[in-house]
Design a protein around this nucleic acid. Structure first.
Length: 675
DNA sequence: CCGCCTCGAGTTCT
DNA sequence: CTCGAGGCGG
């Protein structure tokens, strides 16, 4: 028999803790601190530990999580949990509205609009006022019993607050707050554990933990939005009031609900949230639209599986899960082994994604990505596909940990992977893959800009033995080119003409095109400007080279090494013999113009200028175009569909221009200089 | 020696 | 666009 005094105290503590929880989660108006809450909880745990008879199923102490159970029992839904039909644009919403009005015979139907939380649908059962169990959606008629795990979620009340309810099934969404998810990942990173890919899958995994203590640590949240079977004295008549009723009972409902008098209001709501979705602390994947009147819902009923009184508007997906079929390896022009993902094709944001970069071996290991995994794929900056990570809950059996090959997949040479470096390299400079890539790079737009020689022709030239190194491009003739597949007289003539034109591109582009390690377009321009000719540069020592701005020991050593190697010297001589311009104008005096000394960053698409044209105008005005935004950036020129650079500029307080702003800046200087 | 700034290298899809 | 890493100023 429990000691009466202790029983009283336990009951008081329970009431106090429930109340604190309700104030914190539902009212968002905490009256006691987290520390005080913890102290009360501690006291209750101690009482219950001393006398287990004091323990009740709805005690807040149950939230810390019970010990592991074997497996999940089935959880039948007396009233099935519905799935909703989808709409992807305004027209489909209008069609839905028309059907509703036609079937109901009404001229006007009001709707409630609710954010569609990207989490897991669950059902909670209350008998009397006490929480007695809950389960996942499953196939709609039965899911899994995850009662112990649900108990750990603070925003799920363990007792109803209102009177008059004898039984109720409450439906809603379990989800992960972004802030809680980020905090969890930060802790995992500190502990050296692989990071979770996204909040939704992590929430799913947490809810299916066999050990509820693990679930408790994850800090899941819950929004209630519907009711299944119910037996109560009084019940609301609209969806909007139903949400208020759920709040009165102690549930958290999403604050961004709206009542829409017409379908136009619904569409306005959808458009607003498709833009503002990123401002929320949780992820949403659409909007749920329901006929507001519950009686009308009943009347409309369902067609097959889907109710006729509700529809889910889905935002365009930004990420998706798919199977990682294989990890392939590309060999880059510098010999780097670049792993890439071969994916089961999947639609993301309107395009089919089949491939994605995987960066390097360490990255794959850190994310614990394995061949055969189901992976989460996202389009970084809404463009370039990226594998975020594996969905661990989908992993079946033992998949092998990824390891880079020790020999080049193309030529079989040894692979060099220096300690502490991210990239592994094929050690064979004459590796066919490297040769192909070097020729392609030489002909590319930023380098010698040889029109007509893209990936396909560059590879064909190397593969057919017409070109071994870049100097061979200038010793081609029509007869040789005609031996290649898909090359006719006309194409050959144009390619030869374009190769001829490229001879005058100048030293900066040539140096970049040669593909010297650590010499990209910028360093190439600096060296060309400082030395004026390839002979002067080839004669420079490391000590000479490091005097150039931005050139340190490593880059200097790389340049010097390049010109020491006989094959490279031979390439230079053959280029000279062909009449390729190996000189550059020596660096002109300090830049002048309205943008002298300014550095600008371009992002997005400008209305009437290409990126190249804008860059040329800025350079002409004495300015510099760089790729990343920092405190030193003078202006960010933002066009349509600007990406993360615009956000960064706002964060750092860097001035932002549109195309007009850029033009007036250029014009201002032109006016001055003409005076 | 650390932290910031830049640059290099590789990348997807239509 | 991303990540890695070299250069350099504090």
């Amino acid at each position: 028999m429990p000691v009466p005094r202790a029983a009283e105290r336990a009951a008081a503590l329970r009431a106090q803790l429930d109340d604190a929880n309700y104030r914190y989660h539902v009212l968002d108006d905490p009256q006691i601190s987290d520390a005080e809450y913890d102290a009360l909880l501690r006291e209750l745990i101690d009482l219950e530990t001393a006398d287990p008879a004091l323990r009740t199923p709805d005690s807040p102490t149950m939230r810390v999580g019970a010990a592991p159970t074997g497996a999940f029992a089935p959880y039948p839904h007396v009233k099935p949990m519905l799935s909703l039909g989808n709409a992807f644009d305004g027209d489909e919403l209008r069609a839905f509205d028309e059907r509703v009005r036609k079937l109901s015979g009404r001229t006007d139907v009001a709707y409630t609009c609710e954010l569609k939380i990207d989490g897991l649908a669950i059902s909670l059962r209350y008998d009397g006022a006490a929480f007695t169990g809950g389960g996942t959606r499953g196939d709609g008629s039965a899911g899994e019993d995850v009662t112990e795990n649900l108990r750990t979620i603070r925003s799920i009340p363990l007792r109803l607050r209102g009177a008059g309810v004898r039984h109720i099934d409450v439906r809603g969404e379990v989800y992960f707050r972004r802030s809680d998810f980020d905090a969890l990942n930060a802790r995992r990173e500190a502990a050296g554990l692989p990071l979770f890919a996204n909040p939704r899958n992590t929430a799913a995994g947490a809810l299916r933990q066999l050990d509820a203590r693990m679930t408790a640590e994850r800090r899941l949240s819950f929004f209630a939005y519907a009711v299944g079977e119910v037996d109560a004295d009084a019940f609301p008549t609209t969806q909007f009031e139903l949400l208020a009723f759920l709040r009165e009972q102690g549930f958290v409902t999403n604050p961004h609900v709206a009542r829409a008098a017409t379908i136009d209001d619904v569409i306005a709501y959808v458009e607003r949230w498709s833009v503002e979705r990123d401002t929320l602390d949780y992820e949403i994947d659409g909007v749920v639209v329901k006929v507001d009147e519950l009686a009308l819902q009943e009347q409309l009923g369902s067609a097959g599986k889907d109710p006729r009184w509700a529809i889910a508007y889905k935002f365009r997906a930004r990420e998706a899960t798919t199977r990682l079929l294989q990890i392939g390896i590309n060999v880059g022009r510098t010999g780097t082994l670049n792993p890439f993902a071969v994916l089961e094709p999947v639609q993301i944001g309107g395009v089919t994604v089949k491939l994605a970069s995987l960066h390097n071996e360490d990255d794959i290991r850190r994310k614990d990505i394995r061949e055969g995994d189901v992976v989460l794929v996202r389009r970084a900056g809404d463009v370039i596909p990226e594998v975020v990570g594996p969905v661990l809950s989908e992993r079946r059996g033992d998949l092998p940990v990824f390891a880079l090959p020790t020999h080049c997949p193309v030529c079989g040479s040894d692979v060099d992977h220096p300690e502490g470096e991210a990239m592994a390299r094929c050690t064979n400079a004459t590796c066919p893959a490297q040769r192909r890539e070097r020729v392609r790079h030489f002909c590319s737009r930023g380098a010698m800009d040889i029109e007509g020689v893209g990936d396909v022709l560059a590879f064909a030239l190397v593969d057919h033995g017409l070109v071994d190194d870049v100097s061979d491009l200038y010793h081609l003739d029509a007869a040789k080119l005609l031996t290649l597949p898909r090359m006719g007289e006309k194409t050959v003539a144009s390619v030869l003409a374009n190769i001829e034109t490229s001879k005058t591109r100048g030293l900066a582009r040539l140096l970049f095109g040669l593909g010297i390690r650590m010499v990209g377009s910028q360093n190439a321009a600096i060296l060309a400007g400082d030395y004026g000719s390839i002979d002067a540069l080839a004669a420079a020592t490391v000590e000479d080279l490091i005097r150039s701005d931005g050139i340190g020991e490593q880059i200097a050593a790389s340049v010097a090494l390049f010109f020491q190697q006989p094959p490279n010297r031979a390439v230079v001589e053959r280029l000279r013999a062909a009449g390729v311009d190996l000189t550059a104008p020596k660096r002109e005096r300090a830049p002048v113009g309205p943008l002298a000394g300014k550095s600008l960053v371009l992002t997005g698409t400008l209305p009437s200028l290409t990126r190249e044209e804008a860059t040329a105008l800025i350079v002409e005005a004495g300015g510099k175009v760089t790729s990343a935004v920092s405190k030193k950036t003078s202006y960010v020129v933002a066009g349509d569909e600007a990406g993360t650079k615009l956000t960064k500029a706002q964060e750092l307080g860097v001035a932002i221009l549109d195309e007009g702003g850029l033009r007036s800046l250029l014009a201002a200087g032109a006016a001055e200089s003409s005076v």
